[in-house]
């Protein structure tokens, strides 16, 4: 376990690295245009980066891919239907959470 002085150092270093990533291109490209290729590749930032977070979150349980006996999968699929039908964030999240609670209560 990290000592109580070191934890502050680790936290501040982590915060600085995080800020550096967030500031990086905002700082470098204040007036200049980004290269065209980079711009085009960046149009896929949402589906790529968010899928990289979503898909392991849903498929993994304790670090292993679980397809059977994974209540998150049917709950997530129901939420996707809700999202497609309503385009409403509140409805989407509520549907997924309530579905997950009902499914886990059932089995």
């Amino acid at each position: 376990m990290i000592g109580s002085d070191l934890i502050w150092l680790v936290m501040i270093a982590s915060g600085l690295l995080t800020f550096a990533a967030r500031f990086s291109m905002l700082g470098l490209f204040q007036d200049r245009e980004l290269p065209q290729l980079l711009k085009q590749v960046l149009t896929y930032v949402a589906p790529s980066v968010l899928a990289a977070i979503i898909i392991p979150d849903v498929l993994l349980i304790d670090g292993t891919v679980m397809v059977m006996d994974n209540p998150k999968i049917p709950a997530f699929l129901l939420a996707m239907v809700a999202a497609a039908l309503t385009r409403n964030v509140l409805v989407t999240i509520s549907t997924g959470m309530i579905a997950l609670w009902l499914i886990t209560a059932w089995i």
């Binding site: 979503i54 898909i55 993994l60 998150k72 989407t92 999240i93």
Partner: peptide, 30 residues
Amino acid sequence: IPLTFMAITLPQITSIPPLVALLVAGTVAI
């Protein structure tokens, strides 16, 4: 959290290329 991100992502999947991006990224992540 995955539900929130899905609600943000889904409206972006309007053609083949973003769908490819999503599937490839998800596979590599796993």
